[in-house]
């Protein structure tokens, strides 16, 4: 009798220890998570708080003055927008086309496997290596010089794997029954892709595209070697011109110019973070909407 009670007590004690250990471990995991989330929020909060006082209409729309120590960052904003536009023009058709090939046309085989390996490897190539590549191929070999064209092409190569992977996912998620229905009605393979598959894959493709541009807008190393100018107080006249760009500008004002006022640095950082944040928000909203839609189906 006493024995069993004792055993029961022991068991309860063990159970309690188990519970406590579990609580401790889960607490530790929560701490890990917080160690990631809190710095992220602090980073955003810090830059917003420190930069918000600087960012006003004239900061966004004026040329830099006095060796960039006064005035605005208009040319850097415009430069980044041009680069982003150029990047998307080159990378979207290429990336979506490649995704169509991989999902709809490619047969299982060595070539397809090679392409997939290439896409995976491209995603891991360091951005500064893309810069070297752009410098060698677009700036010098093709003779575009340090220009918007060369920079956009380089960034397009950089985000190509993102676009291909997300477009592929989006195209694969279109049910085969729609393809069958279209083909059975006497639509050709291409008509089926263009009229049925792609329209349904657009939300996914857009999400990938926007995430890609967000990445392109924030990259510094590739444009450092292929397009970015230290200081040009005017807007570009053609695609063969150099431009200033936000990420490079932030690098310059925070490391290359002594005596740069803090306000300009934080203002530039906030604008850059804002641009990236807007792209990120768009992509997230589209993705969530799309998820809801597919739940309804």
């Amino acid at each position: 009798m006493v024995n069993t009670v004792n055993e029961k007590n022991m068991e309860m004690k063990r159970d309690r220890q188990k519970k406590i250990r579990e609580k401790l471990m889960f607490g530790l995991f929560t701490l890990c998570m917080l160690a990631v989330v809190i710095p992220t929020l602090l980073i955003i909060g810090f830059i917003v708080v420190k930069g918000i006082g600087t960012v006003n209409w004239s900061f966004l729309t004026e040329m830099p003055r006095m060796g960039m120590k006064e005035g605005g960052i208009f040319p850097a904003i415009v430069g980044t927008l041009y680069l982003v536009l150029g990047t998307i023009i080159f990378s979207l058709p290429l990336g979506v086309g490649a995704a169509i090939y991989l999902t709809e046309y490619a047969k299982q085989g060595r070539l397809t496997r090679l392409i997939r390996i290439a896409v995976l490897n491209l995603a891991g190539v360091p951005s500064v290596v893309y810069g070297l590549f752009g410098l060698g191929l677009f700036v010098f070999f093709m003779g575009f010089g340090s220009s918007i064209l060369a920079g956009s092409l380089t960034l397009a190569c950089l985000i190509l794997p993102i676009i291909i992977t997300t477009s592929e996912e989006a195209i694969k998620s279109v049910p085969d029954s729609y393809r069958e229905a279209s083909l059975a009605l006497g639509a050709s393979k291409w008509e089926t892709i263009a009229r049925v598959v792609l329209p349904l894959a657009i939300p996914g493709i857009m999400t990938g595209g926007i995430l890609g541009i967000g990445r392109a807008a924030g990259e510094t190393a590739p444009i450092l070697l292929t397009v970015a100018a230290f200081f040009i107080p005017r807007l570009p006249g053609s695609v063969f011109d150099q431009v200033m760009a936000l990420p490079y500008h932030l690098y310059i004002v925070s490391t290359q110019v002594p005596g740069m006022p803090e306000s300009i640095k934080y203002g530039t950082a906030l604008v850059l973070l804002g641009v990236v944040g807007v792209f990120f928000a768009f992509a997230t909203i589209i993705r969530l909407k799309f998820k809801q839609m597919s739940h309804l189906d």
């Binding site: 830059i47 510094t220 950082a269 944040g277 792209f279």
Partner: peptide, 11 residues
């Protein structure tokens, strides 16, 4: 993961 590395460098 979307925060540009130059922003993190700045901080």
């Amino acid at each position: 993961s979307a925060i540009p590395s130059v922003v993190l460098g700045f901080l």
